[in-house]
Structures are given as C-alpha cells and as structure tokens.
C-alpha cells in the first residue's frame, strides 16, 4: 500500500523534479524543495496530526459509547432486592432510586459529551488558524515588513 508521501510524489510537479531533474544529474534546487515542502507536505502533515489528535479526543471522550449509555443508571445503581407480592411503597422506592440514578448518569454524560465537543471545536479552530497563518505567511510577512518600516 503506497504511503501518502509516495502518492504526493506522483503529483505532476513532484514527478517533474524527481525524473527530469534527476536525468539532468542535478539535485533539486533547495528553494524548489522548500516550496514543495512548505505548500504541500507540511500542510498535509498538519492535517494528519489534526486527525490523530481528534481521534485521541474521541477515544478519551467516547461520544458513541456515551450516547449509547445516556439513559443507563449511574454506576449501575439499582434496587435489586426481590419483592414479594405487590408492595406500592417498595415499587415507588425502586422507581425513584432508578430515576435518580438515571438522572445523575444522564447529566454527567451530557456534560462530558459537551466537554468533548468543546475540545474538538477548540482543536479544529486551532488547526484551521494555524494552517491559514502557515499558508498565508509569505503575504503576512511582506505586510509585516511594510508595517514595521512604516512605523519606524
């Protein structure tokens, strides 16, 4: 199975460098290598990193599992004592304990899901900002130099 790096190297721009430049028996110029890496390889690597961290967050806060067990009682608390006949008092006691346990479980799970979603949102925001800055950096650099000169 081809690694993602090999797939990138098969893109036309890369192919040109690897075959044509190699045929000319020269190393790819370092600036060209830098641009290739800066605009293609590095962003792809950031995106892979993002997916790894997103996966880690979903393992730490297992959304699917929490949704599936949303209504289960907290710590499996239930009144399991056997009842003989119909005892309304006992039924009410069991019901209220069950509702309380489920309620606590529901609240805690929902809060945990919210925390997990927040973490995912913050991660995504950070990565998008980072990528934007990274890709727009040359323009920002020139803008920054201009600002500096103006202010000085």
């Amino acid at each position: 199975m081809m690694s993602w790096k090999r797939k990138v190297e098969k893109l036309p721009f890369f192919w040109y460098n690897q075959t044509v430049m190699a045929q000319k028996n020269t190393l790819t110029p370092i600036t060209v290598l830098f641009v290739q890496w800066y605009y293609f390889e590095a962003p792809l690597s950031f995106i892979r990193g993002y997916f790894a961290y997103a996966k880690a967050i979903s393992e730490i806060v297992p959304f699917v599992f929490l949704f599936r067990t949303l209504l289960l009682p907290w710590k499996n608390i239930a009144d399991r004592t056997r009842m003989r006949g119909i005892d309304l008092t006992r039924i009410m006691e069991k019901l209220s304990l069950g509702l309380l346990a489920c309620g606590v479980g529901f609240v805690v799970r929902v809060l945990t899901i919210c925390m997990g979603l927040l973490a995912q949102f913050l991660l995504l925001t950070f990565v998008l900002t980072y990528l934007a800055v990274w890709l727009l950096f040359p323009a920002l650099f020139l803008l920054g130099i201009g600002t500096c000169i103006q202010s000085l």
């Binding site: 393992e59 730490i60 806060v61 297992p62 599992f65 067990t69 289960l72 710590k75 608390i77």
Partner: peptide, 15 residues
C-alpha cells in the same frame, strides 16, 4: 494523552 487520561465514562456502567 490517551494512555494518561484513559477513556472517560466507560466504567460508569460498572457498579
């Protein structure tokens, strides 16, 4: 991170 923090919530079904 996963090793350190573990998985939150899966042991809440155990009594």
């Amino acid at each position: 991170l996963v090793r350190t923090l573990g998985s939150i919530g899966r042991s809440w079904v155990i009594g």
